[in-house]
Design a binder for these strands. Structure first.
Lengths: 376, 376
DNA sequence: ATGGACCCTGCAAAGGTTTGCAGTGAAGTA
DNA sequence: TACTTCACTGCAAACCTTTGCAGGGTCCAT
């Protein structure tokens, strides 16, 4: 049943190599022959066997995409962007979900290594050293984690956290909590660092709660703790947790934003649908997906055949693209933040409860700042 | 750099075939030899090249999963379930998103055909005849669509729609609208059919609005239309549309459920987080993913080598598993439905506004009724 | 001692494609 | 005419693995 290059060759009366060239190097074959071959191929429904091609070229034209949790609405836009970018370059994307499990991550990289040309590692939960080690097995681009020596796509959550804290302090909050995410998350560390200094600079006090599961459940589970801590504002690791927290607080009779202000991170679609609408730090997920694919393909092209990674050539310092791109984030003020106990009497609750300034402008995803690549 | 079976053979002093057997048929090789080979393989970091293996066995150990829209929260649980089921059987899943575009669907099937052992087609938007045609190219299992002659996994949305309508009529609603989804959706047709008879049986009147995009935007866009139509209850194609509609109605000053009741379909996680919490028809997405993978693998096993599909053997009627499984749905009553204008005076709003009976029991996903397979 | 059974291993073909090299024929040049 | 150039095509090796077949032992029973 499966029609091979040989069938096409027989049908069109040429050698298989001519058929092969018709597809992979059309300029090398006589136009007349070409149309005949193409006609036969079309007729027979021939499609090149990618496995066989991969066997000899060493390139599968597939990309692996490893995601901590597909169910987190943060990722789908990234996946979509990566897929469409890849498709434009005749690549396919292999999506895999690790359920936030570092072991599953490692296994998936191994399993994918031989059947993809490279892997996008999104929000990894494993250690940097393991990532470096795995990068010797297959070209890697890391998203949401900084690994020296490897190409990375980062979102400036530090800047986002700072903006969020400044927003809260400006509203008159002093006692602020940071709802931590997974322990092994780079984003988590960055946020904590930035929030700590920003709160100190603003003359407030930061309480860190966590680590927690980056889900609604993780958020609602700490509602009680938040209430007891006496803070008046919370910056959550992501929108899901923020929404869960608001739910949890609501169940305890704590009103948002009247009694406690809540800020999320990601600006997932959902954050515009809850009541109150969520104030959040928008992250450029689509741009991240596209950029990561670009960086991976660029890296791939440099070393076309086998012989990738150290060991081929000099021991260290094989030419590789290791640029690290930092994408900008953007604070979106909606209804989940309001004035705190130290609010200045003038124009109270001016910043909140207004119309969402981002809604008319569509999804409100800021443009990528792919320009500010930080050399490494 | 890439270490092959030959390197392992050389290192352990045996022939490559022995190495091969060590992995694919361990019982055929001397235990001593086996441990030596395994040690060498481990040492060198050998991993079998799946492309080469696929070339000779004809099986890639990959499954394609084609999804209309990853960003629709309905799908991630299905994807996760399919992935984990596949992983248990040493298969990988290739997820691809079509953006609800039938053309993209077709192209993806073609592109995937040669690099997977089978494809799961979820909520396809292309025609039945095209699906049948494509099934000759690669084994297919269809989810959320009934195609005669092909294995299908269906969710009983007809039953769900009926239950929803009966619930609404029981609450005293007579003028009910159905918010249609994509024109080419099987689910959409089933719902319409079931809702039509159920409403008629209940002595009410059904207004069909649509087709619409199955998104929040699609839902909010028809809010005005819903208001003008004068209906007091709406059954939406899915939760996303229901939520969008509630948003839209809210913006028009129409209160849910006081003035209009809204029912969704899917029971996505989000439906428990909005205000009011959404009354919805829960669909067993996880079970559907698992079942679909099982059916595909079962089908695959029957025809191990090439020679799949008609044309090999007699012209028609190649043995294939074409079972069609119907999974049950479950009405979950929450807060978005309330008494209508014809409500009986006794115990008003008894059915709604109670505590969500499903919440304590976890995600509230009903168990699969894989037993009631309908022969085809 | 002979034969058979059995376990393990090696041999070699096969799978579909790409690609360097060589060969063919025609056209152009001297 | 003889030689070069050029465009096109065929040949065959290579990619890495699996697997049917056969050969080499060892052991046991006759």
């Amino acid at each position: 049943m499966p029609v091979t290059i040989r069938d096409v060759a027989r049908a069109s009366g040429v050698h298989i190599s001519t058929v092969s060239r018709t597809f992979s190097a059309p300029h090398l074959v006589n136009p007349e022959t070409r149309v005949r071959v193409l006609a036969c191929a079309e007729d027979l429904g021939y499609r090149p066997n990618r496995a066989a091609r991969a066997l000899i070229t060493g390139r599968t034209h597939n990309i692996g995409l490893i995601i901590a949790d597909i169910a987190n609405p943060f990722f789908p836009p990234l996946i979509k962007a990566a897929e469409s970018q890849a498709r434009h370059r005749d690549y396919h994307v292999f999506v895999a979900d690790t359920n936030e499990d570092p072991t599953a991550e490692e296994e998936l990289v191994h399993a994918l290594a031989k059947q993809v040309d490279g892997v996008l590692l999104c929000s990894p939960r494993m250690s940097n050293s393991l990532i470096e080690q795995l990068s010797r097995e297959v070209p890697l681009v890391v998203v949401n984690r900084q690994v020296t020596g490897l190409p990375c796509v980062l979102m400036d959550v530090g800047q986002g956290a700072r903006a969020a804290v400044e927003h809260l302090i400006g509203l008159g909050h002093r006692d602020i909590a940071l709802l931590g995410g997974p322990r092994s998350s780079w984003t988590n560390r960055e946020m904590r660092r930035a929030a700590t200094t920003a709160v100190r600079t603003g003359g407030g006090e930061l309480t860190v709660l966590g680590p927690n599961a980056p889900t609604e459940t993780g958020g609602s589970a700490v509602a009680e703790q938040v209430r007891r801590s006496g803070v008046t504002a919370v910056l959550a690791y992501n929108d899901l947790m923020a929404i869960g927290l608001i739910e949890g607080l609501d169940a305890l009779g704590v009103r948002v934003p009247q009694q406690v202000s809540v800020v999320g991170v990601d600006d997932i679609a959902l954050s515009r649908l809850t009541r109150p609408k969520l104030t959040t730090v928008a992250t450029p997920t689509g741009a991240a997906g596209r950029t990561a694919v670009d960086m991976l393909l660029q890296q791939d092209i440099e070393s076309p055949r086998g012989a990738r990674g150290p060991g081929a050539g000099t021991a260290v310092g094989v030419r590789r693209t290791t640029a690290q791109v930092m994408l900008q984030t953007d604070l979106v003020i909606r209804d989940s933040t309001g004035p705190g106990p130290h609010a200045r009497p003038a124009r109270p609750r001016a910043a909140s409860h207004g119309p969402d300034p981002h809604c008319p402008a569509g999804p409100g995803i800021p443009t990528a700042a792919s320009g500010d690549a930080v050399a490494s």
